[in-house]
């Protein structure tokens, strides 16, 4: 088992998904495999999830982190997702986004509560370390809240 998995009492649980209209999944497949190989449990969905479906899924699977892949313009829906997660009492769940997300939109996403935006070429170690760190944060917040 890797260090990532050993540090926490159970493997981080991460939802890897896509919202909106686009269906390109090369990136999300690769990231899901990265996270699995780092000892995490990845819940993987088909693209085009409705926001309410992502919220329901996050509740039922008790995930620590949600990773949203966006290669077209679907990142524009992320502020709505953040609001819906908050309303459902999932404020502790950390959210990262990755894919083709214009620089100029990044600040807006971070303001909406997205914890991190990854761009093409983001190193594997960075993705794994960030998700692992955010998962630990999510658990701590949830336990202390």
């Amino acid at each position: 088992m890797t260090d990532t998995a050993k540090r926490t009492s159970r493997p981080p649980r991460v939802l890897v998904t896509k919202i909106g209209l686009d269906g390109h999944d090369r990136g999300s497949r690769i990231v899901a495999a990265y996270l699995r190989d780092a000892g995490m449990e990845v819940i993987y969905t088909a693209p085009w999830q409705k926001i309410e479906a992502v919220v329901k899924l996050a509740v039922e699977e008790d995930v620590d982190v949600i990773g949203v892949s966006s290669l077209a313009t679907d990142h524009l829906l992320l502020p709505d997702l953040m609001a819906a997660l908050g309303a459902a009492g999932l404020g502790h769940v950390r959210v990262v986004a990755g894919g083709i997300i214009p620089d100029g939109d990044e600040a807006e996403l971070l303001r909406a509560g997205v914890n991190r935006v990854f761009h093409p070429g983001s190193p594997r170690e960075d993705i794994v370390a960030t998700v692992s760190h955010l998962a630990a944060q999510a658990r701590a917040t949830c336990a202390n809240g």
Binding site: G20, L21, D22, W48, A72, T73, D74, L76, L77, D80
Partner: peptide, 21 residues
Amino acid sequence: CNSVYRGYDCDEVELPLLGTC
């Protein structure tokens, strides 16, 4: 637009996505 690709009319999808790509 991706809404067209997915087989929908403009009144069936989220407004912020319309015409973006």
